[in-house]
Simulated assay, not measured.
Amino acid sequence: MAVKKVRWPKLDPDSGVEDATLLILEWLGEQGVDALIRVDAERIQAGQPAWTFVASGGQLADAVRTDGVSAAECMGRALFTLREAGLSVPF
């Protein structure tokens, strides 16, 4: 049985994804996808990645979840994961 390798996307900290996050969330909603991004204070205090993005429904066959140490990292990973799931996010 082959094991699927998980590849982390190469993130560009200057991509501006933080500035576009609300537009991305709005676009996902227009596509029938429920999505949110949140920060967890307990995980910050524990030194864990505190930002989480979750999306489900619409064209997504399965729910998507990504975590990151910053909002930009979390959303960069989210865009990568959404594209791998077949959703062409216009960003």
Rank of each mutant, 00 (worst) to 15 (best):
K5H: 12
V17K: 06
R77S: 02
R38G: 09
F53E: 01
R77E: 03
E73M: 10
V39L: 06
D40T: 11
R65C: 10
L82P: 01
T21C: 15
I24Y: 00
Q48D: 08
V17Q: 06
E30S: 07
I44F: 10
W27T: 05
G68C: 10
L22D: 14
T66S: 04
S88M: 03
L87S: 13
E18N: 11
F91N: 03
A50F: 01
S88Y: 03
V3S: 04
Q59S: 15
W27P: 03
A85R: 13
R83F: 02
F53C: 01
L22A: 11
L23C: 06
A63Q: 13
A85M: 07
E30L: 07
P9T: 07
G86E: 08
M1Q: 13
D14H: 12
G76Q: 01
A61L: 13
S70N: 08
V17L: 14
Q48A: 11
P49V: 09
P49Y: 03
G76K: 01
K10T: 15
W8N: 11
I44D: 08
P49E: 04
G76W: 01
I37V: 15
G86Q: 06
A50Y: 00
Q59V: 14
D62W: 02
A85I: 05
L36K: 13
Q48S: 06
A85S: 14
G86K: 07
R65T: 13
G76E: 01
E73F: 05
I37F: 09
W8S: 13
G32Q: 15
V17M: 12
S70E: 08
E26N: 14
F80C: 08
D12N: 15
S70W: 05
G58L: 04
P49A: 08
G58I: 00
G76N: 03
A78C: 06
K4Q: 14
A50G: 04
D19R: 11
A20Q: 15
L82Y: 03
I24M: 03
A50C: 14
R65I: 09
L11Q: 10
E42A: 15
F53Y: 07
V17T: 14
A2W: 07
K4A: 15
A41T: 13
G57W: 03
L11N: 10
A46P: 01
D19C: 06
S88E: 12
A2G: 09
T21Y: 03
L82A: 04
Q59F: 07
P9D: 05
A85E: 11
M75D: 00
V17G: 07
V6C: 02
V69W: 11
K5E: 13
V64M: 02
G16N: 12
G57M: 04
E42I: 09
W27Q: 06
V6Q: 10
E26W: 03
A20P: 04
R38F: 07
L60V: 02
I44Q: 14
E18W: 06
L36G: 11
A46W: 01
D67L: 02
Q59D: 15
P13F: 09
E84M: 12
T21W: 02
E30M: 04
T81M: 13
G32C: 10
V69G: 11
A71M: 15
L22I: 07
V89T: 09
W8M: 13
K5P: 12
D62G: 04
V89M: 07
A72C: 08
W51T: 01
K10E: 15
W51R: 00
D67Y: 02
A78W: 00
